[in-house]
Amino acid sequence: MKQFVFISGKGGTGKSTVVASLAKYVSNKALADADVDAPNLHILLEHEVVEKTPFQGAKIAKIDQSKCIHCHKGYEVCRFDAISKDDVINPLKCEGCGACLLVCPVNAITLHEELTGHVYQSNLNGEHFTHALLAIGAEGSGKLVTEVKKKVKELINKEDYLLVDGSPGIGCVVIASITGADACVIVTEATKSGLSDLKRVQQVADHFGIKTLVCINKYDLNNDVTKRIEEYCKSQNVAIIGKIPFEPLIMKALQQLKTPMEDDRLEHIKNEIISLWDNLIKETK
């Protein structure tokens, strides 16, 4: 089984559209959406949720108001501004550090595991698909990503491929999504910010010894930037496996909940996706 993870550095480059398209094209695979902050694959891909599991990925403090003597020691010691002057904890700001319970003279404060999201296990036309959603203002998305990938790996049996829609950015969440990958595909776009974010995320993947490949989306938006992306990839010995043009009809297809693979007007995009897949297989043989 080969695991391919799609990442982007910058948000909104078209990563999920590429993954959803491949999900329609590639057979004998499993799928995981590791973009837990803003999961999007489940919107485009018709699926049936088989199991929904709550996930506790962080701790927060709770004050037992019946015990609290309002000495304000917790308020004074909290460096995250998470305890109000009337001794109420703001769960959105609590980091779960436990400093307040160390100073509480009456043991009114305890740390509790907090629900930080849900993991979904779904059936996608007979194939496994796991996804998740992080709770609002929650911490611990890296752990949730690890959980989504763990879940799909438990289910995998004879599949040839595992496709993972990774997280944007360069931080810990991305690292959690790319670990264990046979290759990661960076979907970038031909803009100034696209190029700078590509460089940073490529360094992250490189550090973990994971083979990286690049797909340039909207490559004809700015030929100058595209050229610089190509030069950069060449200098890093990274293959460019796909170039997708700027195409307003892609957005129109998405609006009808269709991937480019299911839209007759997007034959040229479909061919690009297929050739991207062929190149990906070739490069990872």
Binding site: E139, G140, S141, G142, K143, T146, G171, C172, V173, I175, A176, V204, H207, F208
Partner: peptide, 9 residues
């Protein structure tokens, strides 16, 4: 050491 990846947030 390889580069740190500073834990998960």
């Amino acid at each position: 050491a390889g580069e740190a990846h500073f834990g998960m947030k």
